[in-house]
Simulated assay, not measured.
Amino acid sequence: MRTGVIARKRGMTAMWDDQGARHPVTVLQLDNCQVTANIKTVRKDKSEYHAVQVAATDKRAKNTTAQMLGHFEKAGVAPKQIVKEFPVTPDAHVPVGTVLSAVHFVPGQYVDVIAKSIGKGFQGGMKRWNFKGLRASHGVSISHRSSGAMGAHQDPGRIWPGKKMPGRLGGERITTQNLKVIRVDSTLNLVFVRGCVPGVDDAHVMVQDAKKTLVFAAKHNHAKALYEKVLPKGVDDLPFPAGTAELAKDLPPVIEAPAMRTSPFIPRE
């Protein structure tokens, strides 16, 4: 299990692959993402917890607390805006101060993106919970978008906790799973993922290897000796323990995943 990275959501656009298929993509950019610490703790059951602490986006020293200034100075990196840690396996620790690059991800693999969703304020039941609402024609008087009945009668005489009701919508930590990496630009540190990502533009997001379709699937197939299925189709290898800026110098500036379908312009035999 490798470490993840902290990126900034730059917005959405569209791409066309070599077969002419259109893909909506979200552009994520790594902004001075560096390793600031390697964490190892022992739990009560004597098992070990390993993690890599990552920080991103330079920050002015005068706007940083004294405690964090000391932490960054010890790591030998400039003050950063955001600091997060990613659980890893014991062999996936990365030297402190390492600059992570967009080549940490390989086109064709799948990633999970974690971010804070867009806050939408106080909303009703239809928008917040996708309720159907009441009848839009006859028999309903100015209650078309109400939530309907709230609960029981005299017994229990109250509303059960957890009832889906109007309230604050958005502004929560959301994980979007299994987004395919379409293109990697090591010059601008851009990662193009297929699909949408939570959060507003320029917000910080956490990007890591997909747990279900990559990490757990690889572990399952490796245990069954299905070595050809350990990595997704079209992916030969992943940078381990991480894709660094030094590694990016030896790779092409732009790497794009090949189309995984037959061309619609070639007649079938």
Rank of each mutant, 00 (worst) to 15 (best):
V54K: 02
A56V: 02
D58S: 11
K59A: 06
K62H: 08
N63G: 08
T64E: 01
T64V: 04
T64F: 01
T65R: 05
A66D: 08
Q67W: 05
Q67I: 11
M68W: 10
L69S: 02
L69P: 01
L69I: 03
L69V: 02
H71S: 04
H71W: 01
F72D: 04
F72W: 06
E73G: 15
K74D: 12
K74L: 12
G76M: 08
G76L: 08
V77A: 13
A78H: 10
P79Q: 08
P79T: 07
Q81M: 07
Q81L: 07
I82S: 09
V83R: 05
V83Q: 06
V83A: 07
E85W: 09
T89D: 13
P90V: 09
A92S: 14
H93E: 13
H93L: 15
H93G: 10
V94H: 01
P95M: 13
P95G: 13
V96Y: 04
V96A: 03
V96G: 02
G97V: 10
L100M: 15
S101T: 02
S101I: 00
A102E: 00
V103Q: 00
V103G: 00
P107W: 10
P107H: 15
Q109W: 00
Q109N: 06
Y110S: 09
Y110R: 09
Y110V: 03
V111G: 00
D112R: 01
V113N: 03
I114A: 12
A115M: 08
K116I: 14
K116T: 14
K116V: 15
G121K: 11
F122T: 11
G125K: 05
G125V: 14
G125N: 05
M126L: 13
M126T: 09
K127G: 05
K127I: 07
N130V: 05
N130C: 07
G139Q: 02
G139I: 04
V140D: 08
S141E: 10
I142G: 07
S143M: 11
S143K: 12
R145L: 11
S146R: 15
S147A: 10
S147K: 11
G148W: 15
M150W: 06
M150C: 06
G151I: 02
A152W: 01
H153V: 13
D155F: 12
G157C: 04
I159C: 03
W160I: 06
G162M: 04
K164Q: 14
P166M: 02
P166V: 02
G167K: 13
R168H: 12
L169A: 05
L169T: 08
G171T: 07
E172D: 14
I174E: 14
T175A: 04
T175P: 02
L179H: 02
V181P: 09
I182P: 00
I182S: 12
R183G: 09
